[in-house]
Amino acid sequence: MADKIMRVEHVSKRFDGLLAVDDVSLDFASGSITALIGPNGAGKTTLFAIVSGFLRPNGGRVLYRGGDITGQPSHRLARMGIARTFQIVQPFADLSVHENIAIGAHLSRPARAAALAAAAEVAGLVGLGDLLERRAASLTVSGGKRLELARALAITPTLLLLDEVLAGLNPSEIRDMLPVIRAIRDRGVTIVMIEHVMQAVMSLADTVHVLAEGRLIAEGPPLSIAGNSRVIEAYLGRGAAGRLAAVGGGNG
């Protein structure tokens, strides 16, 4: 295996009575696309919030490029090259698309003109090149998702955490986004994506981790996950895998 850009070791997070993330250990290989899937409430977004510095875990630690980053604030992690998008888009609503992306570009470019130039370039990359002067609040769902992606890219991340960037898009919009994500990986950015769109997971991911009720229940290449009985049961209920197999057997 290639070297690991990030390791999550025995991380747990408790919200009052709810154990949202329960002793999860996993790692992300440099230059790969990893998908994080699981039913609603499995703890995927909580795990993202922990590794991007928005939440402090109750136990365990997070290593990034070999260093312990557990509990570091998000802005410091961003400076270290960890970028994230939000499941519910969080635009700077009153600013233009151009200005939105420039906020990220400013991280490595103090001059306004340089940041705006870099922002225009990133906008082209995600297909927002023609909407630079649009107010962010007026974007469509798909435009908003692209803006999330563009802003995160503008900080020139090493590790990009995408929280459901395809949710809410129609099939043709999804088809347009897949090559964009692949192109980002090809530029050397490691990508971890939370995704419910299985078509995207199957075609993009090198490795899939499955979370259910806060625990990691399976990991491996996409095809092996699709046939994993524990994964099927997590989504469809206890005994579902057996019943499916029986139905399949009866038909065959």
Binding site: H75, A78, P91, E99, G104, R112
Partner: peptide, 26 residues
């Protein structure tokens, strides 16, 4: 208005979480 400080300050006004995710020390 014309500086990075101003751009980041406005970003914090518009959406603090998003600003922090982009490396802004809010």
């Amino acid at each position: 208005e014309a500086s990075r400080f101003g751009a980041w300050l406005v970003a914090v006004r518009e959406n603090e979480s998003a600003a922090r995710a982009l490396g802004v020390n809010a």
